[in-house]
Write a protein that binds this DNA or RNA. Structure first.
Length: 463
RNA sequence: GGUGCGGUGGCGGAGAGGCUACGCACCGGCCUGCAAAGCCGAGUACACCGGUUCGAAUCCGGUCCGCACCUCCA
């Protein structure tokens, strides 16, 4: 079985062929830690994590590196606004990010390099670019000369002239060409700065990923991941820098072999933005829904498709997962390790995932199996069930923590509910169904749903 | 203006020339004091207009609409 991935550079689905079978190397542009992570950040992390897990089914060693951007204009702004030191902001939000992602079942990257720990590597790379005549110094800035890289635009497919024509950005007068981008810029007094051959300054945005991917993985590596919005200019510039630092006009694949981009998350069909006030924070959603439900929701559509986020997706996912949880918990577990009978079913699932991570198709297969299990009494059904469990494992969905409800009910309300249920049970025993129904109605008004089972009456709070 | 992605049943969402996924909701039935849950069953679809073909949601041409990027942004 082979894995196929859509490569944004060639815009084709390509079979994944590792550069080194014994070590698969992946890099993903990680978060800028200046605020809470939103659902878009989460999609990127979850999808990349799924890619890693998928590769791990076929390859023993998968080295996944994802950076933390801890020096940036937005961070400086956030620090000034809150009047707190920069590292207090970045360490706080890095911690929150890591906790949130852990809740979503995202495995920790093998390495999580911080930009501020790699200033020297960035300076070295900038020096090599100057040496290779691809960068120039202008008014204490160091800029990359886009005209010196003949493949510039290969990823985003933009011609330079067209770009300039429609550009909304004002061209700084220290640039030779409008598209040239900053590698190093002087720091103002109140900004963080490092000594460099060009004076006290700080790095431009793009150079960090080039420097850290090279340092942590070596060049070239297998797959570079990120959100589609990063295609231009961030990834385009990374290619230009990384390749030009090797030697002028190095081919794009001297940097990395596959480009993996995930689609955007929107809210009510529009981009999440602070001005619209429609940013959905992972931290907030986690208060109401288990991380596995959020993760599952993110996987209900294909990773390259746009995803319009809504509470409906969460509700539906929750239902589906509770359905799976019930059937799994009511069945006897079997040892699933390398059982050929399981393999037979499980390969169907794997094939869907191996086909450019087609999670909706894979989920469809899981649901079909679910139907089979319901109808079948044969021993075959336990193999199918084991396949469902294995499938959910690949998806990184952990059912153990999912409860029918996550809503908090305080003790007073709880005892009140139990009292009412007792009253109702008494009424039912006395065949006073009218009274019983009135009590149920009252509970319903408190958002409490009840269910009479053989084991007695159970209740849950509706979200 | 340029670049890219997309428009599939009430909703979500795969598929990519004949096998018309899948889930949620809805409807009918079983079960139940009644509900709920569970089970059984039915229906509804490929933005529009042309063309190719025995056959198109899928290929070709055109039209309309939506979103994103081109500026920090996952």
């Amino acid at each position: 079985m082979q894995i196929f991935l859509f490569d944004s550079l060639s815009r084709k689905k390509r079979e994944f062929i590792p550069l080194d079978n014994d070590n698969i190397r992946i890099y993903a542009c990680g978060p800028t830690v200046y605020d809470y992570a939103h659902i878009g950040n989460a999609r990127m992390a979850v999808v990349t994590d799924l890619l890693v897990r998928t590769l791990q089914t076929l390859y023993k060693n998968v080295t996944f590196v994802s950076n933390i951007t801890d020096v940036d204009d937005k961070i400086i702004k956030a620090a000034n606004a809150s009047k707190k030191p920069i590292n207090e902001i970045t360490s706080k939000f890095q911690k929150i990010y890591e906790e949130d992602m852990e809740n979503l079942g995202v495995q920790k990257p093998y390495k999580q390099p911080k930009a501020t720990d790699h200033i020297n590597e960035m300076i070295e790379m900038i020096e090599s670019l100057i040496r290779n005549d691809c960068a120039y110094i202008s008014e204490k800035n160091v800029l990359f000369n886009v005209r010196k890289y003949k493949f510039y635009g290969c990823l985003s497919r933009r011609s330079k002239d067209e770009q300039i024509a429609g550009s909304r950005v004002e061209v700084a007068n220290y640039k030779k060409n409008a598209e040239d981008f900053i590698l190093w810029k002087p720091s103002k007094d109140n900004e963080p700065g490092w000594n460099s051959p060009w004076g006290k300054g700080r790095p431009g945005w793009h150079i960090e990923c080039s420097a850290m991917s090279k340092k942590c993985l070596g060049l070239p590596f297998d797959i570079h991941c990120g959100g589609v919005d990063l295609t231009f200019p961030h990834h385009e510039n990374e290619i230009a820098q990384s390749c030009s630092s090797i030697s002028p006009n190095s081919e794009p694949n001297s940097f990395c072999n596959y480009w993996f981009h995930n689609g955007f998350v929107t809210a009510s069909g529009e981009k999440m933005s602070k001005s619209l006030g429609n940013i959905k924070l992972v931290n907030e959603i986690l208060k109401k829904y288990d991380g596995s439900i959020i993760r599952f929701s993110l996987l209900t559509s294909h990773y390259r498709q746009p995803l319009d986020w809504s509470e409906d997706i969460l509700k539906q996912s929750k239902k589906t997962l509770i359905k799976f949880k019930r059937i799994i918990e009511s069945s006897e577990p079997i040892d699933s390790a390398n059982n050929p009978k399981i393999r037979k079913y499980f390969d169907d699932f794997l094939n869907a995932i191996y086909d450019d991570l087609n999670t909706p198709k894979a989920l469809g297969i899981l649901n079909k199996w679910f139907e089979v299990i319901k109808k079948s009494r044969s021993t075959e059904k336990q193999y199918i069930l084991a396949s469902i469990i294995k499938g959910l494992e690949i998806l990184g969905v952990n059912l153990t923590k999912i409860k029918p409800t996550l809503s908090q009910v305080d003790n007073t309300l709880q005892s009140r509910i139990l009292k009412m249920i007792n009253e109702r049970d008494e009424a039912r025993q006395n065949k006073d169904f009218k009274k019983a129904d009135i009590i149920r109605e009252k509970l319903k008004n408190l958002d409490i749903e009840i269910e009479d089972t053989v084991k007695g009456t159970i209740w849950r709070k509706n979200d």
